[in-house]
């Protein structure tokens, strides 16, 4: 067995014309580790700006979704792509430049040495870099408690979308992945599938373009939707066994 992990960087983007090219060049240039062979793939979720043209003109590897699926569906497309093309590790990275590629090695290394099945890049372990609003922190605290209550796993930043997954995890998420706001819900999914979740501190930037998928007036809906999703996913996996995930 070779000691090089094939890594797919999945970048879902919806109207990210200002940041895609920069992000692509950054990914290309940052990781120079002999452990990893890195390939990015941009998932264009039916953007209505110039994202599609920019991806095409600059020869950035990408997939165009013919119908807007939302963040969950877009990322899942990347998971399926990773599985079919024989990647060992898949990383999900936001298209707005929030997740700096320079931190990639931090979340990849534990997977390479098989210390975990999922690595979450968290900005709350050490309080460095962009820390986001108090409202979001309140939400994060709430999910931390909910996750701890349901599955006994303590995750500091369950809303972080900067994650690396190994093959075993990919097989699960290719089969079922929540559509909207998938991050907190998937913690339950991973925990109940007895996967080993690890959190490493990473530095995050403020978004460089685009809009957060969590806007202020949507917070109540977000909390409700995710709580419901989390609890029902818990019930489904706990009592129906792992016979089927959907």
């Amino acid at each position: 067995m070779s000691n090089i992990s094939k890594v797919l960087i999945i970048v879902p983007c919806y109207n990210e014309q200002d940041s895609v090219l920069k992000l692509f060049l950054e990914i290309k240039n940052t990781v120079n580790s002999s452990h990893f062979f890195i390939e990015p793939i941009f998932i264009n979720d039916c953007s209505i700006d110039k994202t599609k043209t920019i991806l095409k003109e600059n020869n950035i590897p990408h997939i165009n979704l013919p119908v807007n699926l939302g963040i969950g569906g877009a990322v899942q497309t990347g998971f399926k792509y990773a599985l079919r093309n024989g990647f060992d590790i898949a990383v999900q990275m936001d298209g707005d430049g929030q997740h700096p590629p320079s931190e990639l090695e931090k979340i990849l290394t534990p997977l390479h040495y098989k210390e975990a099945d999922i690595v979450i890049g968290s900005r709350y372990i050490t309080k460095e870099g962009f820390q986001s609003s108090s409202l979001r922190r309140f939400g994060i605290n709430y999910f931390k408690k909910l996750n701890k209550l349901l599955v006994g796993v303590k995750i500091n930043d369950s809303t972080s979308g900067y994650r690396a997954l190994n093959k075993k995890t990919l097989q699960i998420v290719a089969n079922y992945y929540p559509d909207e706001y998938p991050e907190p819900e998937t913690i339950i999914l991973y925990a109940l599938n007895k996967l080993n979740i690890m959190e490493v501190p990473v530095f995050m930037r403020e978004r460089q373009g685009g809009e957060s998928s969590i806007r202020a007036y949507k917070t109540a809906y977000y909390m409700f939707k995710v709580s419901l999703g989390t609890i029902f996913l818990y019930i489904r996996l706990k009592f129906n066994g792992k016979r089927d995930t959907l």
Binding site: I43, H62, I63, N64, L65, P66, V67, L69, G73, Q76, T77, K80, Y81, R84
Partner: peptide, 9 residues
């Protein structure tokens, strides 16, 4: 949708 997008790629 996903199948089609992957296939096209």
């Amino acid at each position: 949708t996903q199948e089609m997008a992957l296939f096209k790629e």
